[in-house]
């Protein structure tokens, strides 16, 4: 678990033992409310979900759930013919399709949002007239409730009545109206477009915060030395904003991998865009497969845990290489 030490450039004050003990005690007291809050608000529901994934729970009969072991994950039946049939989430084609969609969506959206967020942050970091208003303006997509912005985009992406097709046609980019949400070739692109539009501001704001921490004299020194701006960016700026960038990416990654509401409104039933959260909602609430849906949620949790841990490990290697 040394993983997160990436983040801890150690700023703890070195001091005498009794003082240290006092500080540690204070720290424990400070941590208590947070741990307590999280244990109650997150711990219980989380353990409950994991427990349900090992039962035969149905939402209508939640309290009569019986323990069934790993059956929701993997189970098999031997047919009289001697053939063995496997069932469970782990052999569910729909599930693996959702995993693939989630990965595809998560990777593309996080990568593009980071690049665009970085670009927007760099622009906003520059001094120019009306900067304050521009800063407020770029936050608008993030500020509109997802329930609404998803519906708004659904409307704009409508093939006949939508403004997007109309615009593209007027610009001569397309000749035939595209059914964005319906056409399997475009639905993922449409979802990605809306998500990137919506969450780039989040990235930009956090990166901007990081950029503000870069001391101005660093740039001045580089300018005097005549270092090419691109080189300054990669050698100076990027390493310095890395902590901020990394936290932003971690939270974006977790959100992207759990993407739900946008797809739920835009293309809820398309197999092209069905992600892990969407398929798990379907089983939890629409279908009578609460336990199965819980198993899917648990797998998503494990999947994210592995992914984020790996990311932190990987980023650490990178960070050490560049800052020291």
């Amino acid at each position: 678990m040394a993983a997160t030490q990436v983040l801890s450039k150690d700023t703890s004050v070195p001091m005498k033992n009794e003082l240290l003990a006092g500080r540690t005690r204070a720290a424990m007291i400070f941590l208590l409310p947070m741990m307590l809050a999280l244990a109650i608000v997150a711990g219980w529901p989380l353990l409950r979900s994991i427990w349900f994934s090992f039962t035969d729970a149905s939402l209508v009969h939640l309290y009569e759930a019986k323990f069934v072991g790993f059956k929701n994950y993997l189970n098999w039946i031997d047919l009289p013919s001697g053939k063995r049939v496997y069932t469970g989430v782990l052999v569910d084609k729909g599930w693996w399709n959702a995993v693939w969609n989630t990965l595809r969506f998560g990777t593309v959206s996080v990568v593009l949002e980071t690049i665009f967020g970085l670009a927007v942050a760099l622009v906003l970091n520059a001094e120019f007239k009306g900067r304050g208003i521009v800063r407020a303006a770029i936050l608008v997509p993030w500020a509109i409730p997802t329930v609404v912005s998803a519906k708004m985009w659904a409307w704009m992406l409508n093939d006949q009545l939508g403004i997007v097709n109309d615009m593209l046609q007027r610009l001569g980019i397309i000749t035939e109206k595209i059914a964005w949400a319906a056409d399997a070739n475009y639905s993922m692109a449409a979802v990605l477009m809306v998500d990137i539009w919506k969450t780039t501001p989040f990235m930009a704001l956090l990166i901007l915060a990081g950029l503000q921490m870069v001391p101005k004299d660093v740039y001045e020194a580089a300018e005097i030395d005549g270092v090419h701006p691109v080189k300054v960016f990669f050698k100076v700026t990027l390493p310095l904003i890395k902590p901020a960038l990394m936290v932003a990416v971690i939270f974006r990654l977790m959100d992207a991998m759990r993407i739900f509401d946008l797809i739920y409104v835009l293309t809820p039933n398309s197999s092209q865009t069905k992600t892990m959260s969407v398929i798990s909602r379907e089983n939890l609430f629409d279908f009578d497969k609460f336990a199965y849906g819980s198993a899917e949620s648990t797998l998503l949790f494990v999947f994210l845990l592995i992914m984020v841990t790996a990311y932190i490990k990987f980023a650490k290697v990178n960070l050490d290489g560049s800052t020291q």
């Binding site: 947070m34 999280l38 608000v41 997150a42 711990g43 219980w44 529901p45 989380l46 353990l47 409950r48 979900s49 349900f52 939402l59 939640l62 971690i250 977790m254 759990r258 739900f260 892990m276 959260s277 798990s280 909602r281 939890l284 609430f285 609460f290 849906g293 819980s294 949620s297 648990t298 998503l300 949790f301 994210l304 845990l305 984020v308």
Partner: peptide, 16 residues
């Protein structure tokens, strides 16, 4: 702290 927020919202709904 990070891990507790990794569960999909929809899945903690019933417990919450």
């Amino acid at each position: 702290i990070l891990a507790v927020s990794m569960f999909p919202q929809i899945a903690v709904l019933a417990g919450l």
